[in-house]
C-alpha cells in the first residue's frame, strides 16, 4: 500500500484510533480530519482506513454519504444560501441569483481567486428572519437581493 503523507493528517487521526472495547467511528474521524485540514481528500482514505482498522470502501462510503464533509479544499469563505421552505416562501431564490450575479459563479463552484464557494443548504433554522444566507458560521437574516454586495464586502 502506498503511504500518503500530508502534514497534520496523522496527528488528526491519532485520537481517533479505536481503543478496545471502543469501536471505530468513521464519521467522527472524518469530521476530525476536516477540522484540521479543512476538507477530507479522497487520497487520505487508505490512511484513515488503516488507522481505524477498516476497509477503504467502508470509509469511502461514509465520506460520500454526508454532504457537509468536503473532499475538495475549501475557498476562503463558504456562502450557503438557504433553500428551506420559509426562505423559499420569502423568495430566497432571488437572493441566490443576486449572489451568483455578484460573485459570478455557479452553485457548487468556487470563484477563480478562491474567495467564495456558493452552495445551497436545506434549512439553517433561521426561518423567522428569512431569507437566510450563511457565510462561514455567520448566519445573516432578512437578506435582500440589493443588500448582497454590502453583505459580502467584509469577507475578503
Amino acid at each position: 500500500m502506498t503511504t500518503w503523507h500530508r502534514p497534520g493528517l496523522a496527528e488528526a487521526l491519532e485520537p481517533c484510533r479505536p481503543v478496545p472495547p471502543a469501536k471505530p467511528n468513521i464519521l467522527k474521524t472524518l469530521l476530525a480530519v476536516q477540522t484540521v485540514l479543512g476538507h477530507v481528500p479522497t487520497s487520505a482514505i487508505p490512511q484513515i482506513a488503516q488507522v481505524l482498522g477498516l476497509t477503504d470502501a467502508q470509509v469511502a462510503g461514509v465520506l460520500s454519504y454526508y454532504s457537509d464533509i468536503r473532499t475538495r479544499s475549501p475557498s476562503r469563505h463558504l456562502i450557503r444560501v438557504c433553500m428551506g421552505e420559509s426562505c423559499t416562501a420569502n423568495h430566497g431564490g432571488r437572493v441566490l441569483r443576486a449572489i451568483q450575479d455578484h460573485v459570478r459563479v455557479a452553485v457548487g463552484d468556487t470563484t477563480p481567486e478562491g474567495r467564495f464557494t456558493v452552495e445551497k443548504m436545506s434549512c439553517a433554522g433561521n426561518c423567522a428572519v428569512s431569507p437566510t444566507v450563511m457565510i462561514d458560521e455567520d448566519v445573516c437574516g432578512r437578506v435582500t437581493p440589493s443588500g448582497v454586495p454590502s453583505l459580502l464586502e467584509p469577507y475578503t
Partner: peptide, 11 residues
C-alpha cells in the same frame, strides 16, 4: 437533528 425546514424550536 432538526432538519424540517420551517422549524427552529430545538435550536
Amino acid at each position: 437533528d432538526e432538519g424540517d425546514a420551517g422549524t427552529y424550536c430545538d435550536r
